[in-house]
Design a protein around this nucleic acid. Structure first.
Lengths: 161, 161
DNA sequence: GCTGAAAAGCGAGTGGG
DNA sequence: CCCACTCGCTTTTCAGC
């Protein structure tokens, strides 16, 4: 699963792209089902998928969990400014934010703020708790600004091909 | 895969949570592997997973693709303001933005702007093209503001349990 | 890189404790 | 809730083109 080669790029033909499109939507599809509709043998599909895994194009197979079913319906985008942008500050901040399970994504960004975090918790009260006990306890944090998600219009893990 | 019941909530015990944690990281794990370390039988694990699927806790099984391997390394968060917030405008905008494959996520948010989009394309030139030919062609769009991702510090689909 | 067929492993159902 | 035993299908391997 984790044998990721770092070829900068591997060639993807149309068949590879079709396979990836399908697997990004449903990884439980069988090689047989894939082979139909591609007019290809099961073995050929199998070998292509293995090659995509070896080359790190496919990085993981995961189950997606519905946030509202496990009391993680409340989502916030939290923007963060560091007090100082020394290399050690940046490294330390990033190392600590990675450890927070409520933080699903963290990006170093352009613009007024330095980082944007995608945070998932149960509700506003839990977010308040997260802010007070975890986020603002991180070193080097200057100011923060929270943008609350009113509704999710679209959310997919499938990249366009 | 899509038989999603809408129980508002189902009870998850610690065993369910451990199963979900594992499956969120690696859905190719076998029921046997899961049963080890949980001191549970394969059948019990199997039945719990099926129940989680039936109740919509697990919504999908997908393959994750590395963006840089397929020339989608460039990521932008695009904030959008609508000119007018009538219901029909909102509905039309949302229906159209959902169709854009470059838009992986779209959220209706609090704050100065109305929407935040997570957009993935090849590079800055492709983003410019996306803006000019697709985004600004959408109806009812007022102003936009782009925040560019300098680096991804963390990115996971696994919700905390 | 593809095919078809054979082998190995897993999912899924059954009967029973 | 668990175990043991099936069957059928899928994955994986292999020889050959």
């Amino acid at each position: 699963m984790n044998k990721v080669k770092n070829f900068l790029q591997m060639h993807l033909d149309n068949t590879d792209k079709k396979i990836l499109q399908k697997l990004q939507k449903n990884s439980k599809i069988t090689n047989k089902e894939l082979s139909n509709g591609l007019s290809l043998s099961v073995t050929a599909v199998f070998e292509r998928i293995k090659r995509l895994e070896r080359n790190g194009v496919i990085s993981d197979y995961v189950a997606l969990v519905k946030p509202d079913k496990i009391e993680k319906a409340f989502m916030v985008l939290t923007q963060i400014k560091l007090v100082q942008h020394t290399k050690s500050n940046v490294i330390q901040f990033e190392a600590e934010v990675v450890k927070l399970p409520e933080v699903l994504e963290c990006y170093h960004v352009s613009g007024e703020y330095d980082y944007i975090l995608k945070v998932r918790v149960k509700d506003m009260e839990a977010y308040r708790e997260f802010m007070l006990t975890k986020l603002t306890n991180l070193e080097h944090i200057g100011s923060t600004q929270s943008t609350f998600i009113i509704s999710s219009v679209k959310s997919t893990t499938a990249l366009p091909l």
